[in-house]
Structure formats: structure tokens, C-alpha cells
Write a protein that binds this DNA or RNA. Sequence first.
DNA 1: GCAAATTAGTTTGTATGCTAACAGTTTATG
DNA 2: CATAAACTGTTAGCATACAAACTAATTTGC
Lengths: 160, 160
Amino acid sequence: MNKVFHAITEKQQDADATTMAADITSDYQLEDQVGFILRCVNQRHLSIFSRLIPDLTPTQFSALTKLCENGQASQNELGRMIAIDAATIKGVVDRLKLRGLISSESQPSDLRRLILKPTAKGRQLFDQIRVAALAVSEETLKPLSDKERHLFFRLLMKLR
Amino acid sequence: MNKVFHAITEKQQDADATTMAADITSDYQLEDQVGFILRCVNQRHLSIFSRLIPDLTPTQFSALTKLCENGQASQNELGRMIAIDAATIKGVVDRLKLRGLISSESQPSDLRRLILKPTAKGRQLFDQIRVAALAVSEETLKPLSDKERHLFFRLLMKLR
DNA sequence: GCAAATTAGTTTGTATGCTAACAGTTTATG
DNA sequence: CATAAACTGTTAGCATACAAACTAATTTGC
């Protein structure tokens, strides 16, 4: 799982969020920087994801999901849809292909393009996992009330 | 810089955050999952960081900052302070050492430990960069009002 | 006091994620 | 129509990031 995450949360559980947020502009404190906490929250999410969905990485799941949602896409197109650059998406696609979850064929009308589609096995895995994916979101947001979740979501969207 | 981030934001600028957040539990949509958006927000932050602070990666900056704040730390200790596992912190420390920003010596009372300290050059760089680091946070949070920033910070802290 | 458990650091392997440079293909432009 | 510009996928290189397995040193438990 994720040893670092647990070590950290145990240590800093009692921190006073309101106070720390107050002096952002005064003295420099690493823990007050958005980027640092963002990284920790992301870390916690990844830890939850890999525990509930050990079969795929979040990135692989995103790619498979988008292909199942759209039916097909070219490689770079897929990357743009889930915010992954061309160099990275290649590796992701290669690994999904290696596991028989997606297939690729070149598009006759544009020989540069590789058309990717989910295989039957890929669609089956996606259907199995999508429920767990909702549980991942649920557990990630567990520390927040329903009202706080919607608020957090709205603010997070603005920072995309 | 970060080509993916720009391509994505241009496309999805007009998305309605409130509506999308509303149906989290109904039909599965990748864009509604916290983890996905969290990753995008993190991506945007990294892009801002590398533009304003090209000299160091966020992780390297975190490590250097903690050493400057604390004076010294052992390698694993440093990793725990900034939520980085032992395998990763080794590479980070090696690269900072290679650039002469930190020094290491083994601790006589415990021969397993490597005591890390920032060098004069390291402290100097940190002092130069800390202002830019505040600017990174500022620009990352730019889409939010002051009230929203404090709110976001409070909620983010809860999800650590 | 000594074996067992723990801790610190290292190494290997896998997966993201980015930049930069490249070749082949297609589109736009003069 | 010819050439420049843009796009698609690929490769290499670097930097996180984590799991697992390992060595060496220290601490615990009996």
C-alpha cells in the first residue's frame, strides 16, 4: 500500500487548518503552500485507488474509461481527452494492449493515426471496476460532509 | 512548459461545475471523479511551478525547504517530513547533493543514519526562490476569491 | 547477553509525466 | 502545385513515486 501516507497523517492529524491558512502571505511555511497539500491529497487518493482497484492504475483506468465511453479514439486524441501528453499515453496504451484490454489499427484515411478500441475483455473489466471507482471517490471524500463535498468539487473544478 | 494542460483547459473552460458535481453517484462519468480532477489541478500547479521556478522541481524544493527550516535531518526523516518514501528521497537527495545544495555525513552515534544539511549555496538558493514559491501558490489559486481560497484550503487540509 | 524485531539506507523493477528531437503524413498557403 | 506549417506517433532522457527485496546497524524482549 502506501507507507508514507500513513506515517504522515498520523503525525499531522491535529493541525489547525484555519490558523495555517491564515498566514499564507506572511512567513514561508511549506505546509501552507497549496501545491504541497495538493500533492499529499493526491497521494492519499492514489493509495485508496490502488487498494480498491489493484488491477489498473488510475491513468490506465482513465484511458480505458474514455475508450469505453467513446467507443474509439486515436492515440493522441485519447491523450488529450484525459490530459496525458503524447509520450506518456504511448506507454499507457502499450501496456493496455499487452494485456489485451484494447486493440489498435491504423486509420486508412490518415496513415498517421492509430485507432484504439476497447476489446470485449476491456469492456468487461471496465464494467467490473466502475462500481469500485465510485467507491474510490466516496472514500477519498469521506472526511467531508455532503455540503462540503459539493463545495470542494465546485472549487476544485475552478482550479483545473 | 505543459502542452497538455493548455489543450485541455481551452476545451473545457465552459463546463458547468455545479451540474457536474450533482450527479456523482448516478451514472459514471470520468470527469465527475475527484481523483481525475485532482490530477488535473495538480498538473496545472506543476506547470505553474516549473514556469516560475525552473531551477528546482517541487519535490526538490520541498526537501531543500525542510532542511533550511530545520537545519538538518536524516535522509529517511526528511522523506517522512515531506511525505516521500525512502526509495524516492534517495534520488532527490542525490541530485541536490550533486548540485552542491545540500551536504551529507554519517552520524557517529548511529552509523545507519545520513545527516543532511543545506550548504551555504543551498540556503542562498532557497532565499532567492521562496518569494517565487509564494507567487506559485498565488497563481495556482488565482481562479478563486479570497473567501474561496480559505475555504478550499480548509477542505483540502481535511483530505490530506 | 542474545535472538528477534525494527530501523536506515540501497537497489531493482514498474509506471507516470514531462521536454526535446525526430520521421512520416496531411493540411494550409502563397 | 510546391513548400511551409501542423499534426501523429516514436524515441531518448530525466525526475518523481511506489513496491519488494536486501544489507547493515540498532533496539527490544526474554
